[in-house]
Simulated scan of single mutants.
Amino acid sequence: MSGSLTYKGQPIKAGTMAFHTPEGTTYAAQISTDGTYSAADLPEGELVVTVNTEHLNPARKPPAATGRDTEKRMKMMQSRQQPQGSAVVPDEPYIKIPEKYSNPKTSPLTITLQSGRQVHNFDLD
């Protein structure tokens, strides 16, 4: 299965998709920088589709760390100091989408797969 993924008509250029069976099995797919995805070996039948981009959010706070973790992190950051004036550019563009799309219990996205190659485009609103 393959297709494209957009949010309000604009391509979602990074993130992950998951296809959930009624039994609870999950199949993952990566979203490409051109807004397309491809997933192999999906089972036939109805699947709930979820989309997650939040792990790419540059404003997302890291989990709370212990004193020992903080010390290690500080040493690592000091060893990776960037030259003054250089900007950190994220590897993948982040697009915020509504949280409902990331949870299989609230995602309105579903597909019914049959055997063979299929193309399905998703437009989130």
Rank of each mutant, 00 (worst) to 15 (best):
M1A: 07
M1E: 02
S2P: 00
S2E: 08
G3E: 02
G3V: 02
S4R: 05
L5M: 06
L5I: 12
Y7D: 01
Y7N: 02
K8H: 12
Q10G: 12
P11T: 04
P11W: 02
A14H: 03
A14P: 01
A14G: 11
A14E: 02
T16A: 10
A18G: 09
A18T: 06
F19P: 00
F19C: 03
F19I: 05
H20T: 09
E23D: 11
E23Q: 10
E23R: 06
T25P: 00
T26N: 05
Y27I: 00
Y27G: 00
A28V: 04
I31C: 00
I31L: 01
T33Q: 13
D34K: 08
G35F: 02
G35V: 02
T36P: 00
Y37I: 03
Y37M: 03
Y37L: 03
Y37E: 01
A39Y: 00
A39Q: 01
A39G: 04
A40N: 04
A40W: 00
A40I: 00
D41V: 00
L42F: 01
L42Y: 01
L42Q: 01
P43D: 04
E44S: 09
E44P: 01
G45A: 07
E46G: 03
E46A: 09
L47Y: 00
V49L: 06
T50V: 06
T50N: 05
V51T: 03
V51K: 00
N52V: 06
N52A: 13
N52Y: 04
E54A: 13
H55E: 11
H55Y: 13
L56M: 04
L56E: 00
N57D: 15
N57W: 09
P58F: 06
P58E: 09
R60A: 15
R60S: 14
R60F: 06
R60P: 01
K61Y: 06
P63S: 11
P63E: 12
A64H: 11
A64P: 01
T66P: 10
T66F: 10
G67D: 14
R68N: 13
D69Y: 07
T70F: 13
K72N: 13
R73D: 13
R73M: 15
R73C: 07
K75A: 15
K75R: 15
M76K: 14
M76G: 14
S79N: 14
R80Y: 14
R80S: 15
R80F: 15
R80C: 14
Q81D: 14
Q81H: 12
P83Q: 14
G85I: 08
S86I: 11
S86F: 13
S86E: 15
A87G: 09
V88R: 13
P90I: 07
E92V: 09
E92I: 06
P93R: 04
P93M: 07
Y94F: 15
K96A: 14
K100I: 11
Y101P: 01
S102D: 07
S102K: 05
S102A: 14
P104Y: 04
K105N: 14
T106H: 07
P108Q: 10
L109K: 04
T112W: 03
L113T: 05
L113M: 07
Q114K: 11
Q114C: 02
S115Y: 02
G116R: 05
R117I: 04
Q118D: 04
V119P: 01
V119G: 04
V119F: 04
H120W: 06
N121L: 09
N121Y: 08
N121V: 09
D123Y: 10
L124K: 06
L124R: 05
